[in-house]
Structures are given as C-alpha cells and as structure tokens.
C-alpha cells in the first residue's frame, strides 16, 4: 500500500531534495493558534508534519518540548482534541503527510483500538511512539500497521548492527534516526557520524531515513540533509513559538509567523543544498 508518506518521499526524491519534517506540539499554546499554525506549515515549506501529542511526563524530551507539552495541557489539550485538530486540517489539505508523535500511556488508556480507528478516520498517516520498543510490538505497532497506519521507529546511536534488524522489522513510512544519545533539543549532532549511521541503516532498508534531535539552524539542516532523506526540526520551532508568547503564555499577532518564518528559512536551505549535491 502506498501511503501519503511514501508518495511524498518519492516526489522529493525526484526533485533531489530532502524532506523537511517539522515538529510542533498539538495545542501549544492553545487549540486555535496551534490549528492555525498547522494549516500554515505546508505553505511555509514543511514536507511532512509531525505533531506532538502532549504528555505530562515526556521522558525523552528536553526542556523546550517539556514546556510546550505543559503549555498545551494547561490550555486544555487532550488526545481527542488533537485528533479533532487533524480532522480540521484535513478538510483543507489531503496531501501533506501527518505523523503523530508521543508517549504510550495516553494511547493505552484511550484505548489502543479506538485510538487507531480515530487516527485513520481523522487522516493521520503514521505514529511515532517513543516508549514502545520492538520488544513490545504486539501492543501497538502490529495493530497500527494492520489498520493501515505507518509505524515509524526510532533508531539511535546505541542501536548496534545486531539490533538494527529488529528495529527495522516492523518499521514503515520512514526510519527516524535520533542523531544523539540524549534528549530532544540539546547537543548538536556530528554531521559526519550521522551520515555514517544513516548509510549503515540504508544498507539494511529501502525506507527513507530522516534525522532529528538537535537540528536547529538552516546550516545544520542543510549539512545533515546532504546525507539523509529528511531532517526533523522540533525544539527550534517550539522555542520560536515560545519567544512570541507573552508572560502568561498567551499568543501574539506574530506567533504563527514566528514559526513559519523559521520553517521557510529551513526549507529554502534544504532546497538550495540538494540541487548542488544531487547532480
């Protein structure tokens, strides 16, 4: 089955360009602003949209995304509202792939079967769930795949050659390579090491590989993109959003554009790099 994600990567491959994957947290700083931002992301150059499902205890995330989750929850965001937001987005956009990212507990209590059904109905294309490793595949990964969602797995610097096949086995859509051993938005990855790791993954899979964690600037994104199929930028966008809020975390007139301006810069960076490297 060809999904929106497959189609998008195929189209970008023809253009010789890496995908820009943007991460923002659903409901940050509030439902309306977050929805407006979501609708504006494709026009600004986001090729694939990753939406964070806010969780009270985001153990793999650094301070920026922790705070964004807190803002969203404080503003009343729930799993149901996140799915409603995606339904509203899909009314105007049938093409941009959208992936939900988060932690298992809110899905588990949703519960799993209902969540997967509601995702399909809302127009979600894939899931990234940080704390469900291959060892627990029967929980969520297999039912999601069977229902037609992509299940995007994280590979990390600690995923060695012996373990990689297990990580890749039930992965679909793309592989998300975590460029550092650590939490989101902290240390900057070493480009050379990242390219080596992506090459090793690509020897074992046909799937595109996107790289995230610690990518902040257009220059970094461009450098990473030279040896990967996509670049994920999250904390930098979340920080730009945060900077546009007032002291009570209320959005201002420039909140949406503060993020989309950054996305536009990142997208232009990727476009210029790839025309140079692809020939």
């Amino acid at each position: 089955m060809t999904t929106r994600i497959d189609k998008r990567f195929a189209a970008l491959r023809e253009k010789g360009r890496a995908a820009l994957v943007t991460f923002t947290t659903a409901g940050d700083p509030d439902y309306e602003t977050s929805l407006a931002l979501l609708k504006a992301l494709p026009g600004a150059g986001a090729d694939i949209i990753e939406m964070g499902m806010p969780f009270s205890d985001p153990m793999a995330d650094g301070p920026a995304i922790q705070a964004s989750s807190q803002r969203a929850l404080k503003a009343g965001q729930t799993m149901k509202k996140t799915l409603r937001m995606i339904r509203e987005f899909r009314e105007g956009d049938q093409d941009t792939p959208l992936v939900l990212m988060g932690y298992y507990n809110p899905i588990y209590v949703y519960p799993v079967e209902g969540f997967i059904g509601d995702c399909i109905e809302a127009g979600v294309d894939g899931l990234i769930v940080v704390d469900v490793p291959p060892e627990q595949d029967d929980e969520l990964c297999i039912p999601a795949l069977e229902a037609g969602l992509n299940f995007i797995r994280l590979a990390t610097p600690t995923t060695d050659a012996k373990r990689l096949p297990a990580v890749l086995e039930n992965t679909s859509g793309f592989v998300y390579y975590v460029s550092i051993a650590g939490i989101t938005g902290t240390a900057a990855p070493d480009t050379g090491e990242v390219h080596g790791a992506v090459a090793r993954i690509k020897m074992q899979t046909e799937l595109p590989v996107a790289v995230g964690f610690g990518v902040k600037t257009p220059e970094q994104a461009r450098a990473i993109a030279a040896g990967a199929d996509g670049v994920v930028v999250g904390s930098a966008l979340v920080n730009a959003l945060k900077a546009s809020l007032d002291e009570n975390d209320r959005p201002g007139a420039a909140t949406v554009s503060s993020v989309t301006d950054l996305v536009r810069g990142l997208a232009e960076g990727l476009a210029s790099s790839q025309t140079a490297t692809v020939k």
Partner: peptide, 20 residues
C-alpha cells in the same frame, strides 16, 4: 522472560535505552 507479571511490567523505554 519479557518481564511481565500478568499484564503488568514489561519494557517500555526509548530505543536509546533498550540495548542497555
């Protein structure tokens, strides 16, 4: 062998920690 007590327990951690 997978760390379950009935339905409880298990190994729900990020991939970075899994090898460890």
């Amino acid at each position: 062998e997978r760390g379950h007590f009935g339905i409880y327990g298990g190994r729900f951690v990020a991939e970075t920690l899994m090898p460890l």
